[in-house]
Write a protein that binds this DNA or RNA. Structure first.
Lengths: 106, 106
DNA sequence: CAATCATATGCGTTAATATTCATATGTGTT
DNA sequence: AACACATATGAATATTAACGCATATGATTG
């Protein structure tokens, strides 16, 4: 039915993933986590976002399985269950840099 | 000032890129292009979107340099100037699949 | 078990983005 | 030059998502 040269698979899933990553504050949160597990209070501090806002974004990330909460006493630590994600982000960043170069050259 | 474990570089740029990719119809368009150059009419047909809408999204992609227009007579062909982008999309898709597995296992 | 701290949630407001409609521009054809 | 076709654009609307406030929940400490 479709004459696409390239199958992107479930566009829907990809797009929801990208939507999550497209929000600057969520990206900040992911980066502030890095490979470590950190309590929400740490994230609030390092991102300088409001508590409500951090919680809001963490929920989105959590529900998508991009971060995983773990209770430790009164604190809830969040981590990336799959740090591979950071590598992918790095790949994109790298691509962006190259891509910028080409654009300014052309 | 910042105790981030991981530097995601310019979050801003990454986020604008992801924002572009987060729109399902834009993704569709990119995939419908694949490695080929195609006139807008083709894109309209294969994505089944309205002409206006395709044009709208093409503009966004064009302004970001993700697609490049080239006039051929009355037609305007669009291509990916850097097909590497498709590979990155593939990486993400692949990651998503793996990630889903893990989630359902856990 | 009251008080306090960490985090989450419901709700209303606001801002951003997509979509459509009508119309404009640019190109090839007769 | 008039017409038909391909694509773009402006304005209005519709949809979606972010943010803050107030408050709820769950855990710890005295």
């Amino acid at each position: 039915m479709n004459i696409n040269a390239y199958d992107c698979g479930s566009v829907k899933h990809l797009s929801t993933l990208f939507k999550l990553l497209a929000e600057p504050n969520r990206l900040k949160i992911l980066c502030s986590l890095g490979l470590e597990c950190r309590p929400v209070s740490d994230i609030i501090e390092s991102t300088e976002l409001s508590q409500t806002n951090v919680s809001f974004h963490l929920r989105a990330l959590r529900e998508a399985g991009l971060v995983k909460p773990e209770r430790k006493g009164a604190f809830i630590y969040y981590c990336l269950p799959d740090p591979e994600l950071l590598r992918l982000l790095g790949d994109f960043r790298h691509w962006l840099e190259e891509h910028q170069k080409e654009k300014t050259l052309a």
